[in-house]
Structure formats: C-alpha cells, structure tokens
Simulated assay, not measured.
Amino acid sequence: MSMFDNDEAASRLVGGSADADERAVEAVLRPRTLSEFVGQERLREQLSLVLDAARARGHTADHILLSGPPGLGKTTLAMIVAAEMGAPLRITSGPAIQHAGDLAAILSSIGEGDVLFFDEIHRTARAAEELLYTAMEDFRVDVVVGKGPGATAIPLELPRFTLVGATTRTGLLPGPLRDRFGFTGHLDLYEPAELQRVLARSAGLLEVELREDGAHEIAGRSRGTPRIANRLLRRVRDFAQVRADSVVTADIARSALEIFEVDTMGLDRLDRSVLSALCKNFGGGPVGLGTLAVAVAEERETVEEVAEPFLVRAGLLARTPRGRVATPAAWTHLGLAVPQRAPFAGEAELDLFGTNDDN
C-alpha cells in the first residue's frame, strides 16, 4: 500500500525499471498546472470548469474518473487537480488494496479537502470496492470489528475529499462505482503535432537543442503517447551528446532510434518479435496467445498487455476467436510478401476484445 504527499509523488510514481536519475527527470518534465498541460484541450476545459466552480463555492471538487491508455497523463492530471485546489495529494493503487482494511486505513488518515489519487482503480479487490461506495457518496466507512455473529460495524465519519480514479479499462469498473464519480474524462492518443509541442517543452526543460525536423521524427515514432515521446527524447539526447554535436536533427534522431531499436512506426524489439513469429513461424495465424508468447520467449501477460494493444491499434494484428492473426499491413511492414490465401481474409470473425482466454 503506497500513500505519500505531493513532494514525493512525482519522483515515485514512475516506471519501476527507471533509476533515480530517470525518475528525477520525469518529475521535472511533468506539467504543474492545467495551462502547462499540452493537448487534451476539451478535457482540460472541462476539468478547469469543475475545479474553478468548486473553488468559487469553497467546496471540495467532485470525484473525478480519468480513463485512457497508459502514458497520456492521468497521474499528472491528478497532481494538477491537487495543485489547483491547493490540497495535499495522497496516492494509492488498485493492486495495493487487497482487503477492506487496507482501504479503511488510507481513508482514516486523509484530511479535509485532500485529493486521493487511485491508480488502476479497476484492479481494486471487491471487498474494498464496496467500502469505497459509501466513502465516496456518504463520506463514511463502516469498520467491521470481530468475526461471525459477534461482529460489530463501527461507523467512521470521513472529512470531505476528492477521489481521482485512473483506469486503462473503464469497462471493468462496476456501474455503481462509475456512477459515483461526478466527472468522467477520457484521454485520447496525441496527434504528432501535439507531441511535437510536448517535445519542444521537454527539450527546453532538459536544455536540449531540438530542431523542428528532429521533433517531427521523434513524434512520429512515439505511438501517440507523451511518456514515450519524452523517453525517446532522452535517448536521442544521449546519442546527440556522445556521437554528434548535441543538436537533435531528423538525421540524428533516426540514427539514435535505429540503435535503440525503435522503427518508423514506433515498434520496438518485442513488437517486431511478435509480428515476426506470427508471420514467419505460424504463417500469419491464427495462433493462440500462449503459443505466441512461448515463440517470443516472453510471458503471456507481457505479450497481451504490453505488445498487443499498440499492434491492434496500428492495424498490424487482430484478435479473433480462433487466435491472433497478422493483417496485410504486418506483412508489408516486415518487408514480407502478403500470402495469397491469408488467414485474415474473412475466415474468422474479429474479436477486438480477445474474449476467448484460450486464444
């Protein structure tokens, strides 16, 4: 269970594989206010209205649910909500809440007006989820003491607070939980032009001389995701400092990203391994997820949760009831000839949600 204040949040809520220096850089690059946040104009306007109205009334803001793919700024927006409201930020996540008591301990320690950021809220344990209903709606929790017939529920009044929930899978949230959020916002993938603005801002903070064509090259390989764009910028910066004159141009960016195995579509080593195995080893599919994972020497969850979402969005892979299937674009991207009788030509109905667990 993790819970800490604003000063610690920016440096600790970053990918687990990042070292201390990388986390520090991430913290520097995070926008601090809505005006600094690039992109998501409609969402920023809606969120600004919610927060401005709450401040004008002298009340805490309504509970806020933010949804969208990873890396688009949900954590950053939660920090901005706390900053705009002048309130402390407390942070936890769904996987960290395994029991109702875990959640009760967090809720009992928050103060009046605090902002509680709940990352991956769709992964909260059911018992804790039910406790969250009364906490969000009535600002109280019933703490059960004892077991069996002698168990007693002790009501605990809570100060008014704002819950900011973040999820990458809104469909997994129960209806009663979704309904308790006063505002729901969705973050969309960024357009290349928006990513160029993100990169220009980050380059200024990192004191990197980034030319417009260099920003364009990096943005085109960033999968519509600011987090990826900033990560690629840092790696291109390293290349430019060591092997060039520290100026990031299109040619320098291309050379750097070739070394770091990021191709023109933004595919990395894992993505290309999945596509290559699917096309070369299994004739384009259909092939089961477990078999595909073994073929690329990765865990099933890694292939499904890390590689597949972007490959599906990019139109390179399709999920069907019979298994994973490579599209014509996948063969073309790998420089392979599209077979005349392809498995994607209407043999199986597409299932973009991959509901068949055996596949």
Rank of each mutant, 00 (worst) to 15 (best):
P155R: 09
P155W: 09
P155A: 01
L156G: 03
L156F: 15
L156S: 10
E157R: 14
L158W: 09
L158T: 08
L158S: 10
L158Y: 10
P159D: 09
P159S: 08
P159R: 13
R160D: 09
R160M: 03
R160C: 03
R160W: 05
R160L: 03
F161I: 02
F161C: 02
F161W: 05
F161N: 00
T162K: 04
T162I: 09
L163I: 09
V164W: 01
G165R: 03
G165S: 05
A166L: 06
A166E: 10
A166K: 02
T167R: 04
T167C: 07
T167Q: 05
T168P: 13
T168F: 14
T168D: 15
R169Y: 05
R169P: 12
R169F: 06
T170W: 05
T170G: 07
G171W: 01
G171N: 12
L172W: 00
L172R: 09
L172P: 10
P174S: 12
P174F: 04
P174L: 12
P174I: 11
G175Q: 11
G175I: 00
G175V: 11
P176I: 02
P176C: 03
P176Q: 01
L177K: 10
R178S: 11
R178K: 15
R178N: 03
R178L: 15
R178A: 12
D179S: 14
R180E: 01
F181W: 13
F181A: 02
G182L: 03
G182I: 03
F183A: 13
F183W: 15
F183K: 04
T184F: 06
G185T: 10
G185D: 11
G185V: 07
G185F: 03
H186R: 15
L187K: 06
L187G: 03
L187Q: 02
L187M: 12
L187S: 05
D188K: 10
D188Q: 11
L189Y: 00
L189R: 13
L189S: 13
L189C: 02
L189A: 11
Y190C: 04
Y190L: 09
Y190F: 11
Y190A: 08
E191A: 15
E191Y: 12
E191G: 06
P192K: 00
P192V: 00
P192I: 00
A193W: 01
A193D: 13
A193E: 14
A193N: 08
A193Q: 14
L195Q: 08
L195I: 11
Q196G: 08
Q196A: 07
Q196Y: 09
R197N: 14
R197G: 08
R197W: 02
R197C: 07
V198I: 14
V198T: 07
V198P: 15
L199T: 03
L199I: 06
A200E: 15
A200R: 14
A200P: 04
R201G: 12
R201P: 15
R201H: 13
S202C: 15
S202G: 13
S202R: 04
S202E: 11
A203V: 12
A203K: 05
G204S: 06
G204M: 09
L205Q: 13
L205A: 14
L205E: 13
L206W: 00
E207Q: 13
E207A: 14
E207K: 14
E207M: 05
V208A: 15
V208H: 03
V208R: 10
E209I: 01
E209C: 02
E209W: 00
E209M: 03
